[in-house]
Computed example of a mutant assay.
Amino acid sequence: MLPITVQAEEESGLCPVRAILVTVTGKWSSLILLALEDGPQRFSAIKRLIGDISQRVLTENLRALERDGYVRREVVPGSPIEVRYQLTPMGGDLLSRIIPLVTWATNHHAAVQAARNRYDADERVS
């Protein structure tokens, strides 16, 4: 089994699995990484690609991804100043591991939805 067990909440930050997954498995983080798959993007382009993300949430998630080394923020001088975000090599490596999950989700979405519907119907009967 993978090393995921900790004895106390204080130890959870020392677990490498938990320390990484807490950031990269969030809905927004994964979608931001996917939005950067084809190359550098401006903030507004990322927001447009994702659609239903607020400016505040996008900013917070981009900062967290940058802090962890998955995304690089580049300021391009000029008038107006342009800010672009792009994947770092580590971010690209992470994305290459997320894409199979995205493919799996796409292929199994209907089956998962059907299972949820069956479960919900059974729960109403019980």
Rank of each mutant, 00 (worst) to 15 (best):
residue 1 M to E: 04
residue 4 I to L: 11
residue 5 T to M: 08
residue 7 Q to K: 09
residue 7 Q to Y: 08
residue 10 E to W: 04
residue 12 S to E: 12
residue 12 S to Y: 07
residue 14 L to R: 06
residue 14 L to S: 04
residue 15 C to R: 00
residue 17 V to D: 01
residue 17 V to A: 06
residue 17 V to Y: 05
residue 17 V to L: 09
residue 18 R to C: 08
residue 18 R to E: 08
residue 19 A to I: 00
residue 20 I to L: 13
residue 20 I to W: 03
residue 20 I to R: 08
residue 21 L to R: 05
residue 23 T to S: 10
residue 24 V to G: 01
residue 25 T to K: 08
residue 25 T to R: 12
residue 28 W to G: 12
residue 29 S to Q: 13
residue 30 S to I: 14
residue 31 L to G: 01
residue 32 I to F: 00
residue 32 I to H: 00
residue 34 L to N: 03
residue 35 A to V: 10
residue 35 A to W: 05
residue 35 A to I: 11
residue 35 A to D: 04
residue 36 L to S: 00
residue 37 E to H: 11
residue 37 E to W: 04
residue 38 D to T: 13
residue 38 D to S: 13
residue 38 D to Y: 06
residue 39 G to C: 07
residue 39 G to V: 10
residue 40 P to F: 00
residue 41 Q to S: 07
residue 41 Q to H: 06
residue 42 R to L: 01
residue 42 R to V: 06
residue 44 S to V: 12
residue 45 A to S: 09
residue 45 A to I: 13
residue 45 A to H: 05
residue 46 I to C: 02
residue 47 K to G: 08
residue 50 I to S: 02
residue 50 I to H: 01
residue 51 G to W: 04
residue 51 G to A: 07
residue 53 I to G: 11
residue 53 I to D: 11
residue 55 Q to A: 14
residue 58 L to Y: 02
residue 59 T to E: 12
residue 59 T to Y: 09
residue 59 T to W: 07
residue 62 L to P: 05
residue 63 R to L: 13
residue 64 A to T: 14
residue 64 A to H: 10
residue 65 L to D: 01
residue 68 D to Y: 12
residue 69 G to F: 02
residue 69 G to I: 01
residue 70 Y to I: 07
residue 70 Y to L: 10
residue 72 R to K: 12
residue 72 R to G: 03
residue 73 R to L: 08
residue 76 V to P: 07
residue 77 P to A: 05
residue 77 P to C: 05
residue 78 G to F: 04
residue 80 P to C: 08
residue 80 P to K: 09
residue 80 P to Q: 09
residue 81 I to E: 15
residue 83 V to L: 01
residue 84 R to G: 02
residue 86 Q to T: 13
residue 88 T to S: 01
residue 88 T to G: 02
residue 89 P to L: 03
residue 89 P to R: 07
residue 90 M to D: 11
residue 92 G to T: 06
residue 92 G to H: 02
residue 93 D to Q: 15
residue 93 D to P: 10
residue 93 D to T: 15
residue 94 L to R: 04
residue 97 R to M: 05
residue 97 R to I: 03
residue 97 R to D: 03
residue 98 I to Q: 03
residue 98 I to N: 00
residue 98 I to L: 09
residue 98 I to C: 00
residue 99 I to L: 14
residue 100 P to C: 06
residue 100 P to Y: 08
residue 101 L to V: 12
residue 101 L to Q: 06
residue 102 V to G: 00
residue 105 A to V: 14
residue 106 T to D: 08
residue 107 N to G: 15
residue 107 N to H: 15
residue 108 H to D: 11
residue 108 H to G: 10
residue 109 H to N: 12
residue 110 A to R: 14
residue 110 A to N: 09
residue 110 A to P: 03
residue 111 A to I: 07
residue 112 V to A: 03
residue 114 A to T: 15
residue 115 A to Q: 14
residue 115 A to T: 15
residue 115 A to V: 13
residue 115 A to Y: 13
residue 116 R to C: 10
residue 116 R to S: 11
residue 117 N to F: 10
residue 118 R to M: 06
residue 118 R to F: 06
residue 120 D to A: 15
residue 120 D to Q: 15
residue 122 D to R: 14
residue 124 R to L: 12
residue 126 S to A: 08
residue 126 S to D: 09
